[in-house]
Amino acid sequence: MPELINPTARLRASFLAAVTEFRQDRDTPVPWFVTDVDPPALTDARAFNAYVARVLGERDETAAPWDGFVPMTTLWWAEGDQMLGRLAIRHRLTPALEKAGGHIGYDVRPSARRQGHATAMLAAALPIAASLGITEALLTCDDTNTASQRVIEANGGRFIDTVGQKLRYWVPTS
């Protein structure tokens, strides 16, 4: 059964295969986390270990790798040695994240889509968000992304409004 786990070098081969799938998928934009992978990590095992350490370090409030950074807990949705998706829980919001981005963002690799992973992954993340002090998580999705709308609503999402082309929802974490 899949579960949320900390990023780990053990899943390097599957992670790299997922990155390739995301880049080859012509139906959806490449997720930001794919473009955020340190290029050497794609070819060198030691650089991948450093990438994993960087991602784990982003949970620390004092880590500020870029302007506008907020701490976030990144987790991978995995079953055995297969990385099926990734999820990030932002510990707080900036004004920009309140409009687009929200507390939680998730991606399921193309070969694992339409199998219920996004719904299960978000459900598993809500108690973690609660443990970070988030009582209601703000989630956003494109107004054309009906799959994500269904995932959010299946997890108790209550529609708030539309900002630009983003739908915004409050999702209880308990």
Rank of each mutant, 00 (worst) to 15 (best):
P2S: 04
L4Y: 08
L4T: 05
I5A: 11
I5K: 13
N6I: 02
R10W: 00
R10F: 06
R10Q: 08
L11R: 11
L11F: 05
F15E: 00
A18V: 09
V19E: 06
V19I: 15
T20R: 10
F22Q: 01
D27W: 01
D27S: 13
D27H: 09
P29M: 05
P31R: 01
W32H: 08
W32Y: 06
F33D: 05
V34W: 03
T35N: 11
T35D: 12
D36F: 10
D38I: 00
D38R: 06
L42K: 03
L42F: 01
T43E: 14
A47K: 06
A50S: 14
A50M: 09
V52I: 15
A53G: 13
A53Y: 09
A53F: 08
R54S: 10
R54K: 14
V55M: 13
L56R: 15
L56A: 15
L56D: 09
E58S: 04
E58Y: 14
T62P: 00
A64Q: 15
G68M: 13
G68E: 10
M72V: 03
T73I: 12
T73N: 11
T74N: 12
L75E: 01
W76P: 03
Q82L: 06
M83H: 13
G85L: 04
R86W: 04
L93S: 04
L93G: 03
L93K: 06
A96C: 00
E98K: 14
K99I: 08
G101I: 02
I104V: 10
Y106I: 06
D107A: 13
P110L: 08
P110E: 07
S111D: 05
S111H: 05
A112G: 01
A112S: 12
R114C: 03
R114E: 09
H117Y: 09
H117R: 07
H117K: 07
L122H: 10
A125D: 04
I128E: 03
G133F: 07
T135Y: 03
E136R: 13
E136M: 05
A137Q: 05
C141N: 10
D143E: 15
N145G: 08
N145Y: 07
E153K: 14
A154L: 05
G157S: 12
G157C: 11
I160C: 12
D161P: 11
T162C: 14
K166P: 00
R168Y: 10
V171S: 08
V171T: 10
V171E: 06
